[in-house]
Every structure is written in structure tokens, then in C-alpha cells.
Nucleic acid binder design. Structure first.
Lengths: 144, 144
DNA sequence: TTGAATAGTACGAAAATCGTAGTATATGCC
DNA sequence: GGCATATACTACGATTTTCGTACTATTCAA
């Protein structure tokens, strides 16, 4: 397989910066709506996808100090969005699970995210849309 | 033009989440390298693209309080990455310009960004790559 | 020319992040 | 089993960041 040229990479970088900016704005708006900061919403998304995960899991995933994650969990518990449990299997750790309240916040965030994605697809006609999806999924799979 | 189906939107949302996560990691790494926080690096990128811009311009663009932006500028000046000037045209405002030192930091950040973009293109063969670029640029243009 | 609007800064309060030290639990080795 | 060590987390305090309020300097407009 041939390599992408520097020009191609540059073109993609420029085009992509526009998307990511829009996503960021949508993200910030969603966080604001629930009065959550950027870290807390990311933590909530992770906990939603991985029920019973530990504090350490989240801290590693988001690359923050353990104590920072502990504070974030405090805030999420205080807002009734997650619960801390002591699993019998390993009573040192905590198992984090999302509450209905937290799921609501996640749904709100995902709606905004989907709206951004939809806006992208709106720019394309039916054929191009199918092609774009195929290629995007190809890239997503490859990156693993 | 037909509308995207909810299924298509969902597929794109899922695929896209992987990209943005990778970009975020690269971003965090770049910021860490220069000991800049997320806001400061975004401000620096904006100032790089719009020399002589005002503090208010940056604050509006990044959706933060004016005072927050003032503090961010303080930090960037202290690190020798930007300069504050009083333009004669309007002596209330400040014109922000990047320094060679700041340009270096921007270049480092952009390198990481380009690497992420390149990794995406690496997943595709030559034909698909050209198609993907065309569609991505179509979307970027449309979104304006 | 004087009153209102604009652009930014100073300062202090609130929040977030992180490092250090501590507690509780688990594991390994004798 | 018993004891040292490692793991998972929390408490607490220091530092940094964000932001609101009040202030200064400059511009605009009637």
C-alpha cells in the first residue's frame, strides 16, 4: 500500500481541525448544561461504558492522578450520577456504576455528539455518505 | 438531497469517537511537553493563526471569561511565547502576536496533530485516500 | 465636552489538580 | 499462620486555574 503524501496529510489536518472545533463546542455546551467539567463528563462516559470499573481504570484511561479521579468521583456521587461500591472480590477497590441520573447526562451528551455527526453527513449526498461511512469505519478499525 | 438515517449517524458517531480519543491523547502529550494547559495551547494556536488579534477575540473564540483569557495571556507572556502590544489605532485593546518561542510550541503541537491525521490516511489505499480527502473537505466547506 | 460604551487589568473567592502521607486489604514467602 | 510488601484508595494541604466584581484607560457620540 502506498503512503500518504505530506500534502494529503496537510489537507486532512486542515479539514479536520474544523470538525474537532465544532465537536469541542458541542462538548462544552453539554458539559455546561449539567454543570459538569470536562474531566467529570469524560469519566462519566467511561463509567457508562464499563460498569463496575475501578477508580484506577478511569484515572489511567483519562491520564490524571489518582487523587484527581477520586475528587471527580466525589463530585459525581454528590450529584447522584454514579455510585461507589466495595466489591467483595477485592475490598480495597471501588466499583463505579452509573445511576439513572448519570445515564440522563450521558444521553444528553451523546445527543449533542450525534448532532455533530449528523451535521457532517448532511453535507454529503446519498452515495458519498455511504462511501464516507465505509472509509471512516475502515480507519476506526485499523487504528486499533 | 436525502437525509442521513439515524443508523448512519450512529455508525459515524461510534467510529468518530475513536479518532477524537486519539487526537485528545496526542493533544495532551503536546501540551505536557511545553508545560502548557489546554486553554493556553488553544489560545496559542489561535494567536498563531490570527496575528494582532485582541484578547477579546481569543476569549470569544474559546468561550471563556475575559479575565481567564487575561490570565492565560499572562502565562504565555511569562513563558515568552506571545507579546502584548498597544495598537495606536485603538489604545484600549491589546494586539497579541506569537514569538519564535511560541511558534516552536505550535510546530510541536501541529506535528502531533499531523501524525494523527497521517495515521488515519495510512489505513486507506491510494484510491480510498483520495476519496476520503475529497469528502472530508466537502464536509469542512459545508459546515461553514 | 461630557456621558456612555468598550477593552482590558487587579484582586479576591471558588474550584480543580496534584503530591504526600495515611488506611485498609491482598499477596507472597518463609 | 505470620509478616513484609504491594495494591487501591482517601484525607489533607499546596498550587494553579477560572471567574466575578470593581476599577482604569480609551473611544465614541450627541
Amino acid at each position: 500500500m502506498t503512503e500518504p503524501t505530506p500534502e494529503q496529510t496537510e489537507r486532512l489536518a486542515i479539514a479536520f481541525e474544523r470538525f474537532t472545533r465544532r465537536f469541542k463546542v458541542a462538548e462544552a455546551a453539554a458539559a455546561l448544561q449539567n454543570a459538569l467539567n470536562a474531566l467529570d463528563i469524560q469519566a462519566l462516559l467511561f463509567i457508562n461504558e464499563r460498569p463496575e470499573c475501578s477508580l484506577g481504570d478511569v484515572a489511567r484511561h483519562l491520564q490524571v492522578a489518582m487523587t484527581t479521579m477520586s475528587s471527580s468521583a466525589d463530585r459525581l456521587v454528590r450529584r447522584g450520577m454514579i455510585e461507589r461500591q466495595r466489591p467483595e472480590a477485592n475490598r480495597r477497590s471501588v466499583a463505579l456504576t452509573i445511576t439513572p441520573n448519570g445515564q440522563e447526562a450521558v444521553a444528553g451528551y451523546m445527543d449533542g455528539y450525534r448532532a455533530s455527526c449528523r451535521a457532517m453527513l448532511d453535507a454529503l449526498d446519498s452515495d458519498d455518505r455511504a462511501t464516507f461511512l465505509r472509509l471512516t469505519e475502515l480507519i476506526a478499525k485499523y487504528e486499533d
